[in-house]
Design a protein around this nucleic acid. Structure first.
Length: 677
RNA sequence: GCGCCUGUAGCUCAAUUGGAUAGAGCAGCGGUCUUCUAAACCGCAGGUUGGGAGUUCGAUCCUCCCCAGGCGCACCA
């Protein structure tokens, strides 16, 4: 639509003298077809002309309605302070379809030419299972990668693997402790990562009871950092075993990274960061361990005190009277708060060390910015993961000179990123403004301990199973071999899972845990798939709001193109495409580049999700009453001397263009469009 | 206590970041396969946009105060 908007903006500029660039944002696609194709709101325009108020706007609208027709604008009418513009359908069809048909990659632009964008995404932890939270980062990050590539950016996807840290000390200790058993399990064919995770969970349980186990872990990590050969070899073993697992998953999902520089990659680059920080003069000493623990006791006590005081006040106010519904709720809440804080306070007290070791961490005081104290060096001089992220950022800035660095990490980490972004700014680095935390909502109520965590494998298997069922439940008119069916079930299942993660705005939390009638809780995997199944009738299928729905639209169009007597051509009679539904479909194609640009601006793949859902819905609807290969002419078309062959050729071009855009949009979401299903 | 995120139909989400009458899907009810894939289409019903004030021609969107849910708050990453 942009070229039409530009054309209208130029016409308005010519008529009023206001700059076209100022006019363009005031023009928008009409929500309702009865109000034309484009609408121009005249409030701001009138204000720019010194004719403020509603009256001025209405007058300007009147004048423009008279002045604008011409070119692609067939008619214009004033509707209060708006001007509604009707475009010439044949001309719209000609321009849009010709452009889509000719474009090697529709929606592409050169806004990113010469700019590099780094996207830190997926980034799972070594020796930990790949769960749904990692999938979100993976899928969102990948989509952002695809979107920016289309816009001409050089994109470097980085897998910032969690392959370093004190937890590896414990991991090694666990391995040493149960080495014989672990080796045997692996020899018997159990996946290495499963053994790692099991050992890690076991040693953590042990450490909770026996503090000396933690010391054992610390000692191993110290050795690892010191370059001890045995520790190093075991670490490499864990990393390699985990990578095998991750690579398998990435292959399944069709995802790759340009760089796999994990945390360990920055080990030898840390001293330079420390030097830089110390030279900056920003570092100040923080609280000792003892002071910190005492501070926590104080604040917990204060919170408890406050809850109790409120409780007492409310009770006194009530006296013997029964509380109202609202008051009862408040009472319950306060009681719950107090009962939660009591053990917290006790725990906090128990953790205050007897003696003050006097060791003070170093960090940057950002309390003026409401960002607290940003610790960069521990009391013992060790580094924190913030120091590591800062180091990585410097390395990336110096290596790639990026326009931006996107961190696709859960929203819960916001309080980690913002402070150190601020630090980079305070260090005077010009690239600080290119640091962006692309957060996303949590999978709520999921925990490994409670048994409600979900691993990717289960989800994908369930998705494939549903895809098989759905295929059986339909009346197929297409012949598929068993191999094809199996391969399609796998692909459709994956597309369903990916699309679920991209469908809603990033920041929304996802809660898959549902409560049964008996109060028990379980994870509802069907929610991910928009899957519904009627136990009585046996009817089953994916919802209209799902990956398979999109795939099906594409497959239907592919089927028509396969059966067409000849490939679609660009030379057709565009006047035959003037009915309202076809025009709406074509205009939707025209809005694709705008959707891509918005998605990039907002780092929001869901903009594309919504676009493609809308396109698929229009496609299915259009196919229901627009026969492509054997169409019937309207009386008007017949009277104008058109032939069914001409109409078929014109519609075939529509089919071809819609299919191309569907495919492109799905590609941006990391979904591979199928030709058959 | 401090900071951040979220709140729109019974449920899951939109609303072109301040524009006209707030739209979809699911669930519910009723229709449509002798024509290109029915994993589809068409229709009906469903709303005090959490509450209140403010800013202005106009607020789901911006500001302030409440309410509810979630997350974080010092040497784990």
């Amino acid at each position: 639509m942009e070229s039409f908007v530009r054309e209208v903006a130029d016409a308005v500029a010519a008529a009023t003298g206001v700059d076209a660039a100022e006019v363009a944002p005031l023009i928008q696609a009409s929500k309702d077809a009865s109000r034309g194709d484009l609408a121009l709101a005249c409030f701001k325009l009138a204000a720019s002309l010194g004719r403020g108020g509603k009256d001025g706007a209405q007058a300007v609208a009147q004048e423009l309605a008279a002045a604008l027709p011409g070119g692609v604008v067939r008619a214009a009418e004033a509707a209060g302070p708006y001007v509604n513009l009707h475009l010439d359908p044949a001309e719209v069809a000609r321009r849009v379809l010709t452009e889509v048909h000719a474009a090697p990659a529709y929606g592409a632009s050169n806004v990113g030419a010469g700019k590099t964008i780094l996207i830190d995404f997926s980034s799972p932890n070594i020796a930990k299972p790949f769960h749904l939270g990692h999938l979100r980062s993976t899928v969102i990050g990948w989509s952002l990668r695809q979107i920016h590539r289309l816009l001409g950016y050089e994109v470097v996807g980085i897998n910032h693997l969690g392959d370093w840290g004190t937890q590896f000390g414990l991991q090694i200790a666990a391995w040493k402790r149960w080495e014989a058993e672990a080796k045997q399990r692996i020899a018997e064919g159990e996946r290495e990562i499963e053994v790692f995770v099991d050992l890690y969970q076991r040693i953590n349980a042990l450490a909770a009871e026996d503090p000396s186990v933690k010391d054992e872990g610390r000692e191993w990590f110290r050795k690892l950092e010191a370059g001890d050969p045995e520790a190093h070899e075991l670490w490499r073993f864990f990393v390699a075993g985990s990578k095998v697992e991750f690579d398998r998953i990435y292959a399944l999902l069709g995802i790759t990274h340009e760089s796999e520089a994990g945390e360990a990659f920055y080990n030898d680059k840390m001293p330079a960061t420390i030097e830089r920080l110390q030279a900056s003069g920003l570092l100040t000493p923080g609280l000792t361990r003892k002071e910190t623990a005492e501070e926590r006791v104080r604040s917990t006590a204060a919170r408890l005190e406050k809850a109790r005081a409120e409780l007492a006040e409310l009770r006194a106010k009530l006296g013997d009277a029964a509380p109202s519904g609202k008051q009862a709720k408040k009472l319950a809440k306060l009681e719950q708060q107090a009962s939660k804080l009591e053990p917290e306070l006790e725990q906090a007290r128990a953790q205050v060390p007897a003696e003050d070791d006097g060791l003070r961490p170093q960090g940057v005081d950002l309390s003026a910015e409401h960002l607290g104290f940003l610790m960069l060096l521990k009391g013992d001089g060790g580094t924190t993961y913030t120091t590591r992220d800062v180091t990585a950022a410097y390395y990336r800035a110096e290596t790639y000179h990026p326009h931006k660095i996107l961190y696709v990490v859960g929203e819960t980490q916001r309080d980690h990123f913002l402070p150190w972004f601020k630090l980079i700014e305070k260090l005077g680095e010009p690239w600080a403004k290119g640091l962006v935390h692309v957060g996303f909502g949590n999978y709520a109520n999921m925990s490994t301990r409670k048994g409600t965590a979900v691993f990717l494998e289960e989800v994908l298997e369930h998705a494939r199973e549903c895809a098989r069922k759905a295929a059986e439940a339909t009346s197929k008119k297409i012949e598929l071999s068993d191999d094809e069916k199996e391969e399609i079930a796998r692909a459709i299942g994956i597309s369903a899972v990916k699309f679920f993660d991209l469908r809603a705005e990033r920041l929304k939390d996802i809660d898959l845990v549902v409560e049964g009638p008996d109060g028990s809780k379980r994870v509802d995997l069907d929610r991910i798939l928009s899957w519904r199944e009627d136990p009585e009738t046996g009817a089953a299928g994916f919802g209209r709001d799902s990956g398979p729905y999109l795939q099906f639209a594409h497959a239907r169009l592919a089927g028509i193109l396969r059966k067409a007597p000849q490939p679609p051509g660009a030379e057709v009679d565009f006047a035959l495409l003037d009915n309202a539904e076809t025009q709406a479909l074509i205009r939707h194609l025209a809005s694709f580049p705008g959707a891509v640009a918005t998605a990039a601006e907002r780092y929001e793949p869901s903009v594309i999700s919504r676009y493609v859902l809308d396109l698929a819905a229009r496609t299915h609807s259009w196919l229901a009453d627009h026969n492509v290969l054997a169409p019937s002419l309207t009386p008007e078309q017949e009277a104008a001397g058109a032939t069914p062959e001409q109409l078929s050729a014109a519609r075939l071009l529509v089919v071809s263009c819609v299919k191309a855009v569907l495919k492109q949009a799905l590609h941006l979401l990391g979904i591979d469009a199928r030709e058959k299903m």
